[in-house]
Design a protein around this nucleic acid. Structure first.
Length: 418
RNA sequence: GUGGGUAUAGCUCAGUUGGUUAGAGCACCAGGUUGUGGCCCUGGGUGUCGUGGGUUCAAAUCCCACUACUCACCCCA
């Protein structure tokens, strides 16, 4: 048997409605904040991600689906969206058309990691990128949007964590201080953190290993290195969140895996989804556009993991999906009437009714059982004496009542069903 | 990439110290008097016991390998 690729999932009818619900909510909220949708290709030149995300990050160095196409080009399935959006922004000079571009997306992403609860190789994210302004109000707005969506899904057990990495310069100064601080304690760090010391020293801060946290006890504090404008912006973000009644925690050890972040970074965590608890993460990236060859343009964005969000909804039992109904199931009383029934169904469908009938030549009893299983509101019987008089029987399945109507009296049928 | 756990029907699972033809509930199909559902009753098993080896008179059951799934590390949404 051919099976789905490891880490990919099929999504079937009853569950798809949860996805629709989430997607509709996402579109609705982004629309209210006046973000417009952008769609970019699922694959890009590998070099885009290498430059945009950072060669030394795990995503780029060991998790990308990279292949050589028949023309010899190295292409990669997108592991995240920001690089693609920024590429499109630069390529099509969006900055020239609008001084501020507020964009959102809903899209599959691909990373070849070992699957786990809340972690798949093909997964889906929604998210946003605002390109063209340094305003910290946009930073806060990102958190507000993500938080609103999660709240409107009925999620309760959420924690918003924020931090500021400062400007590129202060970030570099801090990294040097941290390197100095850790230099003589290196052998006390976990194996992973020894590695991080060379590759991505900030990530030692959020290590889960107890021994690492012991070593870090008197480590220099990131916030002490922020310059004045970073501090001021961080204050605005905090004050704005407070004014919106969005609870947050300042998490001094929050750093993020992607290299391009500066100043505000944030994450929203659910305590209900196992170890992959981060539902949403993002931050400001004022240097990325220039890094990828565009005019210097500040940006801020976030991405949210849709599988994780739905998992949290599942675990908090916060999404109630209404049972599907159809309007009419047509029961054929004699087998040779299928042509008549099909045409009748078609006429009703053109009038915006959801209509189905039997394609398996089953008995009347079996057809009735099917109508019941489909949760049909009405049944129409076609055939017999009534048909000789050009009539059908319309039966209301909820109370069992039924009346005869002329077969060409569509408006009579429709008014009773609607 | 590293660890732990699991694998029997479409689903959830039972299957004793190895012993006839591998089971239950749900789901599914048919029927319960001409053409009417849900509830009920009757009948129907729909299976490569994950795969491949090994031990044995005999393996779903014991051993080995592999694969898949799953949880955690890692990573991140």
């Amino acid at each position: 048997m051919i099976k789905a690729i490891t880490g990919t999932k099929d999504i079937f009818p009853p569950d798809v409605s949860k996805w629709h619900h989430l997607e509709n909510l996402v579109r609705d909220i982004f629309n209210r904040f006046n973000y417009l949708e952008i769609r970019t290709p699922v694959f890009e030149n590998t070099s885009l991600f290498a430059r945009g995300i950072g060669e030394e990050t795990d995503i780029v160095s060991k998790e990308m689906y990279t292949m050589i196409d028949r023309g010899g080009t190295s292409i990669t399935l997108k592991p995240e969206m920001t690089a693609g959006v920024v590429r499109a922004f630069i390529e099509h000079s969006l900055g020239e058309k609008n001084s501020l571009n507020k964009l959102y997306y809903i899209s599959p992403m691909f990373r070849q990691e070992r699957p786990q609860a809340g972690r798949l190789r093909q997964f889906h994210q929604f998210g946003a990128e605002a390109l063209g302004s340094i305003s910290p109000f946009l930073d806060a707005e990102m958190i507000e949007i993500a938080y609103s969506i999660l709240k409107l899904l009925g999620l309760k057990d959420l924690t918003v964590k924020i931090n500021s990495l400062g400007s590129q310069q202060s970030k570099e100064i801090y990294k040097n201080e941290l390197r100095k601080f850790l230099a003589d304690k290196k052998d006390k760090l976990s194996e992973e953190s020894k590695n991080r010391f060379e590759k991505n020293i900030l990530r030692i801060l959020d290590s889960k290993a107890e021994q690492d946290q012991q070593v870090l006890l008197n480590a220099p504090n990131l916030l002490d290195f922020l310059d004045e404008s970073s501090l001021k912006d961080f204050e605005i973000v905090k004050n704005y969140l407070t004014s919106l009644n969005i609870p947050y925690e300042i998490e001094l050890k929050l750093v993020r895996g992607l290299n391009y972040y500066t100043n505000t970074i944030f994450e929203i965590i659910s305590n209900k989804v196992g170890s992959q608890s981060s539902l949403c993460g993002g931050g400001r990236y004022d240097l990325l556009v220039e890094e990828l060859g565009g005019k210097p343009t500040p940006g801020v964005g976030f991405a949210a993991g849709m599988e994780r969000i739905l998992l949290a909804c599942e675990n908090e039992n916060s999404l109630s999906v209404p049972q599907r109904q159809i309007d009419i199931y047509i029961v054929r009383l004699e087998k040779e009437l299928t042509f008549k029934v099909a045409g009748f169904a078609s006429a009703l469908r053109y009038n915006n009714l959801t209509v189905d009938y039997d394609y398996l030549e089953r008995s009347v009893k079996a057809q009735m059982r099917e109508a019941n299983r489909l949760n049909s509101r009405f049944v129409i019987f076609v055939g017999g004496e009534e048909l000789n008089r050009n009539e059908i029987i319309l039966k209301n399945l909820s109370d069992g009542s039924q009346i005869n109507l002329k077969i060409d009296d569509l408006s009579g049928i429709i008014s009773r069903v609607k």
